[in-house]
Design a protein around this nucleic acid. Structure first.
Lengths: 212, 212
DNA sequence: GTGGCAGACCGAGAATTTCTAGGCCTGGGC
DNA sequence: GCCCAGGCCTAGAAATTCTCGGTCTGCCAC
């Protein structure tokens, strides 16, 4: 059996960078410097012989190859996490955590999103008492709430719904800028749309295309 | 997103050691010393908090947890390989190579085993001019041939078949000792059995059970 | 325009991880 | 009873990875 595989660390750096479309943000998520991410991604690109990102002076874009690679790598991580937690439950491999504010929870099925089979294995944790600051601080990856977000965060409008008192409100998914399109959030958005036949809804646009 | 995953290197050491049921053999496959394998596996066990092997004075056995973990890790490697080769074909991630001697090829479907969908993605290379020495040297992982093997290798008898000249011969899979039960060989054996409704065939026994 | 700033890149050196080497220990086979 | 195979251990060497400055480029506000 011969092996020639990229290292897990460089894949992890790639996955985080692709999700955030930023080396800096990926670095802060993983807890290293952005130089380390840059080096790991470069190493991965060199070992593959393929450019995964297009570097722009103010941020990144995925190339076509990078965009094709990302969801498959995400799945590899998800499978590895599932396998690992099966034999070592306390290991807690890789969590994408979703905050649900109480008012939004009232219009969603009980236990959403963990109770939804189709979101497995991407979504791994539910936080019930979440608010916007936790998204900013990185304590949770996204927040589902009634009402808009905040200028520094991305807001994705799912549907208009009637809250407990009968008032019409917008159900939104709030996340860091650029992340509405990451695999996990896209799965959540698709699920919410299926649940709440939307009167008006935003558009999922894949920004992860090669430019020029 | 929080991460707490074992390192790829330690998983690779585990996978090879489990396949060979020997640190020494795994070390020689990967090209390091057996001490390195021992350390990597121990690190993995420590980080999981679970024993994967039962160390015997003369070899290894998988524990129940190790036996449950192995096929899932194999799949993770296979998926990673497939994803990686898709965007970087020359990468050649991880190959399980099957030798087919010409006389055996004559009684098998053309292109076997690569042409068989159900063997994807475990089997990754076919070598047509193979002989027993290549198995011993580790140049290929197993060999399918007519007639038995050699005292130092494991022989798994699939079926009795008529060769080109009408003589009855035994179709056998030859591999290193203990490896007839590894995932890849088991898949090959099952496929061959399905193809050649066997008159007599051996038994696949899973030796990878925890003892006592 | 021009200054400030965000974000990526680079290189040197530090820190951490991984590997090797050599000796030890145990049990099976002759 | 001796020899050998195979795993274990530890110390030090080797390799990898990370950090820390410093640089460069283009955007934005003034």
């Amino acid at each position: 059996m011969t092996y020639r595989l990229p290292s897990l660390n460089s894949l992890r750096a790639f996955e985080a960078a692709a999700r955030h479309l930023s080396f800096r943000a990926a670095a802060s998520e993983i807890g290293v410097t952005s130089g380390a991410i840059s080096q790991q991604v470069r190493k991965l690109e060199r070992s593959l012989g393929v450019d995964l990102f297009r570097r722009l002076p103010h941020g990144l874009l995925l190339t076509a190859e990078g965009a094709a690679y990302l969801p498959r790598i995400t799945r590899v991580f998800d499978d590895l996490t599932a396998a690992t937690e099966e034999i070592a439950p306390e290991m807690n491999g890789r969590k994408f955590s979703v905050g649900v504010c109480p008012r939004a929870a009232a219009v969603l099925p009980p236990g959403w999103p963990l109770a939804r089979r189709n979101l497995e294995p991407h979504v791994r944790e539910r936080v019930a008492t979440a608010d916007l600051h936790e998204v900013k601080a990185g304590a949770i990856d996204c927040l589902v709430r009634l009402g808009g977000g905040d200028g520094d965060l991305e807001r994705f409008e799912i549907a208009r719904v009637a809250d407990a008192s009968g008032r019409e409100e917008r159900l939104c998914l709030i996340c860091k800028p650029g992340l509405a399109h990451c695999l996990q959030n896209a799965a959540l958005i698709a699920d919410l749309r299926g649940l709440l036949s939307p009167k008006t809804a935003g558009e999922i646009v894949d920004v992860r295309a090669e430019i020029g």
